[in-house]
Design a protein around this nucleic acid. Sequence first.
DNA 1: AGCCTAAGCGGAGAAAATTCCGCTTACAAG
DNA 2: CTTGTAAGCGGAATTTTCTCCGCTTAGGCT
Lengths: 213, 213
Amino acid sequence: MLCDVCGREPLPVLGQPQPERADAARNRRRILDVASRLIAERGAHQLSLDEVAREAGVGVGTVYRRFGHRTGLVWALIDEHERRFQAAFMTGPPPVGPGAPPDARLRAFLRARVDRMVAQQDIYLQLELGASKAGYSGPYWIHHTHVAALLAEARPDLDAGFFANALLAPVNARLIHSQLVERGRSLDEFKAGLDALITAVLHAPRGGRPGEA
Amino acid sequence: MLCDVCGREPLPVLGQPQPERADAARNRRRILDVASRLIAERGAHQLSLDEVAREAGVGVGTVYRRFGHRTGLVWALIDEHERRFQAAFMTGPPPVGPGAPPDARLRAFLRARVDRMVAQQDIYLQLELGASKAGYSGPYWIHHTHVAALLAEARPDLDAGFFANALLAPVNARLIHSQLVERGRSLDEFKAGLDALITAVLHAPRGGRPGEA
DNA sequence: AGCCTAAGCGGAGAAAATTCCGCTTACAAG
DNA sequence: CTTGTAAGCGGAATTTTCTCCGCTTAGGCT
C-alpha cells in the first residue's frame, strides 16, 4: 500500500540472503560488480540501470526484480559496509563497541558515521535522493535504536527517541557535502561540532518529564 | 559547472521578478495555477510536468525554461508562503519577529517551521527529494543565517554556524512525516522535543573555543 | 533419466524528465 | 507604422526509470 502523502511504500529490508537459485545468485553478483565499477568510473549520480543491465548481460527486468528500484541497488552496494559498521558498534571493541562509557560511544559512533559518509559521499547523496521513495530505510532505524539506547543509559530522564533523531539528523550526506565542499569547513570542525552537540544534549537541564526543558 | 561528487549545479535564486514579457508572465501564472491545482487534486508526488504543460496550454519547453526542473517548479509554489514566513521572522511581531528574547524567538521559529512543513507535507517531501539536484536552496541558508544570529546573540561562545545546522536538521519533512505518520508521535511531542533541544544547546557547557565541548 | 513447476529471465514498452533548436512574436527604437 | 532582435515558444527527440508478461530453466521429485 502506498502512503497517500508521500506516495511510497517501505523499502523491503534486505535481510540475510534467503535460498536463491544458482543463476539468480550469479546475476546478483554480476549486477553488483558492474554497478560498483560504473560508480567508480563515473560517479553514482549518473548510474543508469539500463546500462548496468546491459553491461552485466542481463535484462533490466532482472535488475528491477532483484533490487526493486534504483535506490535499492545503491543501498545493496552499501550493505556490506553497513553490516561491518553495525558489527563494529554492536559487538566490536571500544570506544565504538560496548565497554566504553555511553558518552564516549556516542562520540565515536557519530564520528564513524561521518567518516563512512565522507568516504562514499556520492553514494550516500544518491541514497538520500531516493530516500523519499524508500523512506527512512532499515539502517537509519538501527542507528536510531543504538543512539537512543546510549542516550537512555546516560540520561534516562530525556526523550531518547527524539534526541536520537536530533543527533542523527545533522549527520547526513547533503549537509556534510555542503559544509565540506561549498562552505569550506574542515572535517575536524564538523566533528568537533558534533562533540559539542552531544555534550550539550548530555548536559541538558533536567526537566519535569522526558522531552521537556 | 557541475559538482563532480554530486553532479548538480546550484539552484538559481528566485529573486524579485525581473522585467518579463507579457506573454511570459501570463504563461508563468498559468503554469503555477495548473500545478497547484494538480497537486491539490492528486498530491505533489505524482505531478507530471508534461501534464502541467498540456493543461496549461504551453509546451514543456516553456515549463523548463521558466523553472529549470521539477524541483524549481515545486519550489516556486512554496515561494509565496516562504516570503511571508521570512517577513514574519525578520520584521513581524514577537515572539517570531524581533522584540522577544532570542531563546523565545528560536522556539517560535522552529515551531513555525514545523507547522509550515506539516501544512504542506507532500510538497516539502517533494522538495527534499529534488534537493540533491538543487542542493540546499536559498531558503535553507536564510533560515540558517537567522538561527545562527539568534544563537550568537544568546550564546556568543558557541559555534553558531554548526548549531544552527543542528537545530534545523531535525526539522525536515521526511523526519516529521515518519514521526507523525509511521511512528504515531504527536505534533506536540515533536515540538516539545525541539524546545528541549534548544534548551540543551542554549545551556551547553562553556568550552575553551567555539565549537568545543 | 524424465517431469513439473515455481523461480527466474529479458526486453518491449509505457511514462516521466529534460534537452534542443528552429520558428514566432513582443516591443522598443526609429 | 516598420523593422530588428532578443526573448520566448513548442514539441519532437533523447534518456532514464520502472512495469508487464510470456518464455525458459534450475533443481526437487519419482
